[in-house]
C-alpha cells in the first residue's frame, strides 16, 4: 500500500492541477440580506484524484461544485479548471456533471439521452451511436438502449446519467450526491462500480456527499466543510489503493479516517449549538 501512496502523491509539479481554487468567496443576495455561501476557500485538486466534499447541508459543498462547473460565479477570488477559468473550461466542455436527480429527458430513450450531449457538441451520427453503446456498456446498461427512462429503476436511471456525463469523454467528472436518493445496497454497488470506472478511465472525480462511509471509501482526498459561512475546515488524504473493495470498510485505517471526518464535522458544527 505504501508505494501506492507515493504514487498518488507524486510531485505536484508533474501532475497538472485539474481544479485550482484560490481564496474564493461567494455571497448570495437574498430577500433577508446577504448569505455567505462560501468564504475564502482554498483547494487544489490534481489530475486523477478522487475528491469528496462532505459536510452538513448549507455548508456550500454543492455551491463549490457549481462554481467549478461555472453554474455559479464567485464574488471574489480566482478559480481555474485545467489551467483556464471555469467559464472557458465549460465552453471547452472540460467536465461532465452528474446531478442529484438523474434528470433524463423523459421523451428520449436511454440511448438518445446518452447521445444528447454528443448531439449538442456536434459529434457525427455514427460516433454518437458508437459512444452511446460503449458508455452504456460501461455502466452495465447494455440492452436498455431503447427503453424510456420511466421503464428503469432509480439506480439504473442514475447510471444512465453517468453514462451521459461520460459520453463526451471529459477529463473531469463532477458529481453532486449522485447516489443520495438510492437505498444503501444499490448505493454500495454503484460506489464500487464508480471506483472501477475511475480506476479504468483515469479521470478526475469531484464528488459531493453527506455520507461519511461513502466519502472515505471512494476518495483519495476528503474535503470537510462547515456552514455559515461555508468553508473548508479539514482536508484529509485517504491512502487506500485505487482498486479498493468494500471490505476495506472493516479495516482500522478506514475507521480512523471516518473518525477524523466525523470529528471535523462535529467541530464545524459546535459553535452553532
Amino acid at each position: 500500500m505504501a508505494d501506492k501512496v507515493t504514487d498518488v502523491k507524486a510531485d505536484p509539479a508533474v501532475r497538472r492541477l485539474a481544479v485550482d481554487v484560490r481564496d474564493v468567496s461567494l455571497t448570495f443576495e437574498t430577500a433577508d440580506g446577504k448569505v455567505n455561501a462560501l468564504a475564502n476557500v482554498q483547494l487544489q485538486i490534481a489530475e486523477g484524484e478522487f475528491v469528496s466534499f462532505i459536510g452538513p447541508s448549507g455548508c456550500g459543498k454543492t455551491t463549490l461544485l457549481r462554481l467549478i462547473a461555472d453554474l455559479e460565479q464567485p464574488t471574489s477570488g480566482t478559480l481555474l479548471v485545467n489551467g483556464v477559468t471555469a467559464g472557458e473550461a465549460r465552453l471547452e466542455r472540460a467536465y461532465g456533471y452528474v446531478f442529484q436527480a438523474p434528470a433524463l429527458y423523459p421523451w428520449r430513450t436511454i440511448e438518445k439521452n446518452v447521445m444528447l450531449p454528443l448531439e449538442v457538441m456536434g459529434f457525427s451520427d455514427s460516433e454518437r451511436r458508437e459512444r452511446a453503446k460503449r458508455y452504456l456498456a460501461l455502466v452495465n446498461l447494455s440492452g436498455f438502449e431503447r427503453k424510456f427512462p420511466w421503464q428503469l429503476s432509480g439506480g439504473m436511471q442514475q447510471r444512465a446519467s453517468i453514462a451521459r456525463a461520460l459520453s463526451f469523454d471529459p477529463a473531469l467528472l463532477l458529481m453532486d450526491e449522485p447516489f443520495g436518493a438510492l437505498d444503501e445496497i444499490v448505493r454500495d454497488h454503484l460506489n464500487e462500480q464508480l471506483l472501477r470506472l475511475w480506476d479504468k478511465t483515469n479521470k478526475t472525480v469531484v464528488f459531493v456527499t453527506h455520507s461519511i462511509p461513502e466519502a472515505v471509501f471512494l476518495s483519495t482526498k476528503i474535503v470537510v466543510m462547515s456552514p455559515r459561512p461555508g468553508r473548508i475546515i479539514d482536508i484529509i488524504d485517504c491512502e487506500f489503493p485505487r482498486d479498493r473493495t468494500l471490505e476495506i470498510r472493516e479495516t482500522p485505517e478506514f475507521i480512523k479516517i471516518a473518525q477524523r471526518v466525523r470529528n471535523g464535522l462535529r467541530a464545524g458544527h459546535s459553535y452553532d449549538e
Binding site: A69, D70, L71, R90, L91, R93, Y95, G96, Y97, F99, Q100, A101, A103, Y105, L116, P117, V120, M121, F168
Partner: peptide, 13 residues
C-alpha cells in the same frame, strides 16, 4: 426544471 436546464448549460448548448 432547473436541473434539465443546468445540464444544457454544462454542455455549453
Amino acid at each position: 426544471d432547473p436541473i434539465q436546464r443546468d445540464l444544457m448549460r454544462t454542455w455549453s448548448a
